[in-house]
C-alpha cells in the first residue's frame, strides 16, 4: 500500500458502532469473506429486505462511489468483532477517514490492511463539504508521506500512524509474521519467568 486516490463515500454520523457496521446476526460465518453485502445492513435496507434499499443511505446513493469511506467521530466503537473491518474491506474500501477511531477497530483495520486515517474535526468537515458540493471530488491518501489531500481544493493535512505499522502496510507483512520470527525469544522469556 502506497498511494490511494479515489472518490469518497460520506457517512455523516458520529459514534458509528460495530453493531451498525455489521449487526451480530451476520457474524455466524466461519470465513473472512462475504461480509461486505451486510455492511451497515440495518441502515442500508428497509425491513431487512435486500430488495428495498433505503435510497437516502450513502452506500445506496449512486452519487457516491470509491474506495474511501468517510465517517464522523468515534468510528468503530463497541465490540471487538474484526468482522467490522472485514465487511468494510469486503465492500471494496481501502481507507476509512474519521476524526476519531475506537482503539480495537483501529488495530483490526490495520491488521487487515485497511488504512484508518485520523484527521482533525475541521478537516473532516472540509471533506464532507467538498464531497457534498461535488460528489466526484477525489481524495488522495499518501501513506509514505502521511498526507491526505482534497484534490479539488488542494487542502491537505498530515496524519499519524505508528511507524512500525506503516512499514507493515507498505511492505505487506503482518504482526503474525513478526511474532513467529520471535518464537525463540518468547520461549526464553517463559523460561526466565518460570525460574523466578
Amino acid at each position: 500500500m502506497q498511494q490511494i486516490k479515489s472518490r469518497a463515500v460520506p457517512v455523516r454520523m458520529e459514534n458509528i458502532d460495530t453493531d451498525q457496521i455489521i449487526p451480530a446476526r451476520f457474524l455466524k460465518a466461519t470465513s473472512r469473506e462475504g461480509f461486505g453485502k451486510n455492511l451497515f445492513r440495518d441502515w442500508r435496507y428497509e425491513n431487512d429486505d435486500e430488495n428495498s434499499p433505503k435510497a437516502d443511505f450513502p452506500l445506496n446513493d449512486p452519487r457516491w462511489s470509491g474506495t474511501i469511506l468517510v465517517a464522523g467521530k468515534n468510528f468503530g466503537c463497541g465490540s471487538s468483532r474484526e468482522h467490522a473491518a472485514w465487511a468494510i474491506k469486503d465492500a471494496g474500501f481501502e481507507v476509512v477517514v474519521s476524526s476519531f477511531f475506537a482503539d480495537i477497530f483501529r488495530n483490526n483495520a490495520l491488521n487487515n490492511f485497511l488504512l484508518p486515517v485520523q484527521v482533525s474535526e475541521k478537516f473532516l468537515q472540509q471533506i464532507f463539504e467538498a464531497v457534498d458540493a461535488d460528489p466526484s471530488t477525489e481524495l488522495s491518501v499518501d501513506l509514505p508521506a502521511q498526507m491526505i489531500t482534497i484534490t479539488t481544493t488542494g487542502v491537505s493535512e498530515s496524519f499519524d500512524i505508528n511507524p512500525y505499522k506503516k512499514t507493515c502496510l507498505i511492505n505487506g507483512y503482518d504482526d503474525i509474521d513478526y511474532l513467529i520470527n520471535m518464537m525463540p525469544e518468547i520461549e526464553s522469556f517463559e523460561a526466565d519467568r518460570a525460574a523466578v
Binding site: A85, I104, D175
Partner: peptide
Amino acid sequence: FGIGTSEVEM
C-alpha cells in the same frame, strides 16, 4: 482487554 480475530490468531 479485547482483541480482534487476527490477534486471536497471534
